[in-house]
Simulated assay, not measured.
Amino acid sequence: MPRLISPLALALIGVLLFGDGAYIHAKAWLAQLLLERAFDRSVATGEMIRPWSWADTWPVARIEVRRIGASAIVLEGTSGQALAFGPGHIHQTVDAGERGIAVYAAHRDTHFRFLRNVAIGDVIEVTRSDGKYFRYRADSSAVVRFDESGIDPATQNFELVLATCWPFDAVTSGPERYVLHATLITTGE
C-alpha cells in the first residue's frame, strides 16, 4: 500500500504544480483579451475605460512587433497588480510619441517574453489610447543592473524603451534587466 501512495502523491503534486503554472499563463492571456476590448473602446470613445470594474489601472497603449507577431496592451503604472495583467507605463516617463523617453516594463515570462525575438532594426509600433500611432526602430539593447539602466530622462529625442528582467529563462528574479531601446521613425493618426 505505501508503494502505491507515494507515486499517487507525486502525481498529484505534479498536477498541482502544472496547474499553478498554467493558471498564470491563462490569466495573462485572458487579461490581454479584456484589455484589448477596453483599449479598443478607449480609442473609439476617447475615454479611459477600465478593463474590469475593480481594476486600478487602464489601457494606455498597444505595442506591436509585426515581424514576430507580437502584441501587448500597456497599462498605466507598474504596480505589482498592473504588471500581473500586462506591460506597464512607468509614471515618470513621457507617453509614446512625446519628446523624451517612454518606458514600458513587463514580466519576462509573460507579456514581454517576445523581447527575446526582437532584432535590432525591427519596427515597434505603438498606438496610444487617444488613437495616435507611432513607429519606432529598435536600435540597441543592453543587459544592465536594475539600478543602472543608462536611460537618460533628459533626452530631447523621441525614444522608446522596453524593459524586462534578465535572463529570459531564469526561474528566480535577479538584479539584471534587459533594456531594448528604439528611436521614433514615423507618426500618424
Rank of each mutant, 00 (worst) to 15 (best):
T172F: 13
I101E: 02
A163N: 04
G150T: 10
K132P: 07
S149L: 13
T93D: 08
G100D: 04
Q156S: 13
E125P: 06
A106L: 05
D139L: 06
T155C: 11
R116S: 08
V143P: 08
R145A: 14
I151M: 05
D152S: 11
Y104Q: 02
T155F: 08
G150I: 06
D109P: 15
V171D: 13
T172V: 12
E148W: 07
D130W: 09
T164F: 02
Y178C: 05
D169W: 10
R137S: 09
D169Q: 14
F134C: 01
A182Q: 02
R99D: 06
A119T: 13
F168W: 08
I124K: 01
S141D: 07
L162C: 05
V143C: 11
I120P: 09
V118L: 03
A154V: 08
T164K: 05
R135T: 06
D139S: 13
R113K: 15
A138W: 00
A84Q: 11
F134I: 01
N117C: 08
I120T: 15
P167Y: 04
P167N: 05
F112V: 10
A170I: 09
A102E: 02
I151L: 14
I90H: 05
A102T: 05
Q92D: 12
K132W: 05
R177Y: 08
D109R: 14
R99G: 12
Y104E: 00
T164I: 12
V103M: 03
D152Y: 09
V161E: 01
T172I: 11
V103P: 00
V144T: 14
T155Y: 10
G121V: 04
G150D: 11
R108D: 02
A163D: 01
I120L: 13
F168M: 14
L115H: 03
S141N: 12
P167T: 10
A96G: 10
F134R: 00
Q92T: 12
L83E: 04
F85K: 02
V118P: 01
L115V: 07
H181S: 07
V161K: 02
A154D: 15
F114H: 06
G86H: 03
T93C: 11
I90P: 03
T127K: 03
L162V: 08
A138N: 04
E159S: 07
G174L: 09
A163F: 00
A106C: 09
A138K: 03
Y136D: 00
A154I: 06
F85N: 03
D152F: 06
S129V: 04
A182W: 01
Y178M: 09
E176F: 15
R137P: 06
I120F: 06
V143E: 07
T127P: 02
A163I: 07
T127C: 04
H107A: 07
F146Y: 15
F168Y: 11
T172H: 13
A105T: 12
S140K: 14
L160C: 05
D139Q: 11
L115K: 04
E98K: 15
E176P: 08
V143T: 15
G100E: 04
G121M: 04
P87E: 01
Q156V: 10
V144I: 12
R135Q: 14
G88K: 00
D122E: 09
I120R: 13
H89E: 06
D95K: 11
I101V: 15
F112A: 05
D169M: 11
L180V: 13
D130Q: 12
S129M: 05
H181R: 13
A102V: 03
